[in-house]
């Protein structure tokens, strides 16, 4: 294809997106569109899969059967969300194995929030309430994104995710209304998860390298800073309602903006964790790689069994 032809196709493509048309897997698309989507969608899938680890840590120690079935269902949903997203990404021509390889070698990233440890039961509350809360804010606009398979996967994900946040907040309510020790545990979890949750919504707009292009492709509808402000404004009253304190001395209602002003985010910490120096980066990757390698014989056995069954069927037919 000549350069001119490609340019022509690109213009038609951008116009389709501007008209709110969806792009489907076999449609022509610019290489950059394909690559950007593979990167973002696979990162999203990896985040769901790695995101099971911090919570999986507490399934066997959930304090009641009610809490246990809920946590188990939430973690199972995350596996499902990872699978919807992996298969949506595969429609762009990358194989599942390549994606795993990229995750396991550290080439692909996942949400850095999962590189923090879950040291008390209250962390299950804080994760559901804050981490899933921030994730929902990030994900809802994606239900309208330009790539059809991604948008469809996100609609399913968003439908299922609202119970995640509620179950987390319910854990926090219960602890906040419990004994002084329980309340302290809830406050401690909020203290540890608040800032990482704010960071989860991404670098400030000034530092975000992908924003402009992603806005054009509707991979993004609002900027990181706007999403962050939305998260803060919706979460602060929820903390107040249950008597917990947001760990930010600079947090103040701004009458004029009808929004909360908040303190400086420690972006050095964010970049340290992204670069692999968070408290749990190594542990998370080790768990993933072990699961993959230790499961190899099961995958092989299943395949061998399937082939044997097929052979037997064919022999019978002869």
């Amino acid at each position: 294809m000549s350069e001119e032809q490609v340019k022509n196709l690109e213009e038609q493509f951008e116009a389709r997106i501007a008209r709110d048309e969806k792009i489907e897997p076999k449609d022509w698309m610019p290489e950059k569109y394909r690559k950007t989507h593979i990167r973002q969608m696979s990162q999203h899938a990896h985040s769901e899969i790695v995101g099971m680890l911090p919570e999986g840590n507490w399934i066997t120690r959930a304090p009641s059967l009610r809490r246990k079935v809920a946590l188990l269902a939430k973690v199972q949903d995350e596996a499902g969300h990872g699978l919807y997203l992996y298969s949506a990404t595969e429609t762009l021509g990358i194989s599942r194995e390549e994606m795993y390889e990229q995750l396991h070698t550290g080439k692909a990233k996942y949400s850095s929030i999962f590189n923090y440890p879950t040291i008390t039961w209250a962390d299950m509350g804080a994760i559901g309430w804050l981490v899933d809360g921030a994730a929902i804010i990030n994900q809802v606009p994606l239900c309208n994104t330009s790539y059809g398979p991604y948008a469809r996967a996100m609609i399913r994900v968003c439908k299922e995710e609202s119970f995640h946040q509620r179950q987390g907040y319910e854990i926090m309510i219960k602890l906040a209304n419990g004994t002084p020790e329980q309340k302290e545990m809830a406050q401690d979890a909020l203290n540890r998860w608040w800032w990482p949750s704010l960071m989860m919504l991404g670098p400030t707009d000034a530092e975000s390298i992908h924003t402009a292009q992603s806005m054009k492709w509707k991979l993004k509808r609002k900027s990181n800073d706007d999403l962050r402000q939305q998260f803060i404004d919706q979460t602060v009253p929820q903390a107040e309602l249950i008597g917990l304190t947001i760990p930010d001395p600079d947090l103040k209602w701004n009458e004029e903006r009808q929004s909360y002003d908040f303190g400086e985010i420690d972006w050095d910490e964010f970049w340290q964790v992204v670069k692999g120096h968070g408290p749990m980066n190594k542990e998370r990757m080790k768990a993933r790689v072990n699961a993959w390698e230790n499961g190899a014989w099961v995958r092989d056995a299943a395949m061998a069994h399937a082939e044997k069954k097929q052979d037997r069927k064919e022999k019978k037919a002869v």
């Binding site: 699978l83 919807y84 298969s87 949506a88 595969e90 599942r96 469809r152 996967a153 399913r156 995958r299 299943a302 395949m303 069994h305 399937a306 069954k309 097929q310």
Partner: peptide
Amino acid sequence: HCGSLHAADEEM
């Protein structure tokens, strides 16, 4: 159609 998945055989 609601999506896809990987499996060794039709039963799985």
